[in-house]
């Protein structure tokens, strides 16, 4: 099952600290949305409010058009995958996955069949009688996912579900998570601070900062045309060049006043926006590209990060004529 989710001007306070500041967000049924931001940005607070583990100070949350005010977690059409899995250690995997159905009064044989089906869905077929302590971290996370999906929630909430896994396993699980979401069609709301993970799974990324939404959009849009300096920097490395009335440290590059943003990989030997001669300060080979820091000869106080082609071999001290293929100007308000 699946349902839309509407967050309307939700504010949350802990003591005097403002955790969420009038946040509004609409999520379509079946969408995979990632709440992305540094710790303390309010993303987990928002997830807890959707799950019903806390009530907002003001604002409304609607799931499938129904107001969720005062509805306990047990009664909400949501389930959560917790970062620490929170499996029941004294139960078999089948009982873990079937727990929600048991609470709904489903008979044992039916529960068992559904549990087997869900375990197969997450790639753990035939392990129904194992116990959680026999599994690896990645496998436990799969069980937690199967358990949350077994009750066919309208909205699945994922609280940094891959946070405890090592990098390689995390990248593999991302692809699977996306694949499972496509198959079940449930609305997924996923919280993470890892922007690569966000781009790997999300239909839409919501970048959050200090209790507010800094940017919303598909991964491509949020990465290539961010609407704020914060989301530009959080989505990946970016060069920021201050521009005042069309003038910058590197000369006249673009008109207007604000900040010129250029991703490191947009800088190379050819491009529409010439940056002039730059001296190479240091170089490191990254496999997919060569990462270097350069200083424009015109502006000795400026340092740019550039990703050069893998085939280009440069030494520190070399002078290159660089240009940008893509850039973005964020005008000052």
């Amino acid at each position: 099952m699946t349902a839309s989710l509407s967050i309307q001007s939700v504010t949350q306070r802990y003591g005097t600290a403002l955790a969420l500041d009038a946040v509004s967000l609409d999520i379509a049924a079946g969408e995979f949305v990632v709440l992305l931001g540094p710790s303390g940005c309010g993303k987990t607070t928002l997830l807890n409010l959707i799950g019903g583990f806390a009530e907002p100070v003001s604002g409304r949350i609607l799931i499938g058009g129904k107001d969720m005010a005062g509805v306990a977690p047990a009664q909400r059409p949501t389930t959560t995958v917790f970062q620490d899995y929170a499996l029941f250690p004294h139960m078999t995997l089948a009982d873990n996955v079937g727990f929600g159905l048991r609470m709904r009064g489903v008979a044992r044989p039916e529960r068992r069949a559904k549990a087997e089906e869900m375990l197969a869905l997450v790639g753990l077929p035939g392990k129904a009688l194992r116990r959680p302590h026999e599994l690896s971290g990645g496998q436990r996370q799969r069980v937690a996912l199967a358990r949350a999906l077994a009750v066919a929630p309208d909205v699945l909430l994922l609280d940094e579900p891959l946070g405890a896994l090592d990098l390689k396993l995390r990248r593999a699980m991302q692809d699977e998570l996306k694949e499972i979401q496509r198959r079940v069609g449930t609305t997924f709301v996923h919280v993470t601070h890892d922007q690569e993970e966000a781009m790997a799974v999300a239909d839409r990324i919501v970048v959050m900062n200090a209790g507010k939404i800094a940017d919303v959009g598909p991964p491509r849009e949020v990465y290539l045309s961010p609407k704020s300096l914060f989301s530009a920097a959080f989505m990946g490395e970016i060069n920021q060049i201050a521009v005042r009335d069309g003038q910058s440290a590197l000369g006249a590059l673009v008109p207007g006043t604000g900040t010129l943003l250029i991703r490191p990989e947009a800088i190379g030997l050819n491009g529409a926006l010439p940056l002039g001669l730059c001296r190479v300060e240091d170089v490191a080979f990254f496999g997919t590209h060569v990462r270097a820091h350069v200083t424009p000869l015109k502006a000795p106080g400026t340092r740019l990060t550039v990703h050069l082609a893998q085939t280009l071999s440069v030494e520190p001290g070399a002078v290159l004529d660089l240009a940008a293929t893509d850039h973005l100007m964020l005008e000052e308000e």
Binding site: G51, F53, A72, P73, A74, Q75, T78, T79, T80, F82, D84, A86, L87, F88, P89, F99, G100, M103, R104, R147, A148, V151
Partner: peptide
Amino acid sequence: NAERAARDLG
């Protein structure tokens, strides 16, 4: 945490 998960599951 396990209790929270149980409550979440109904």
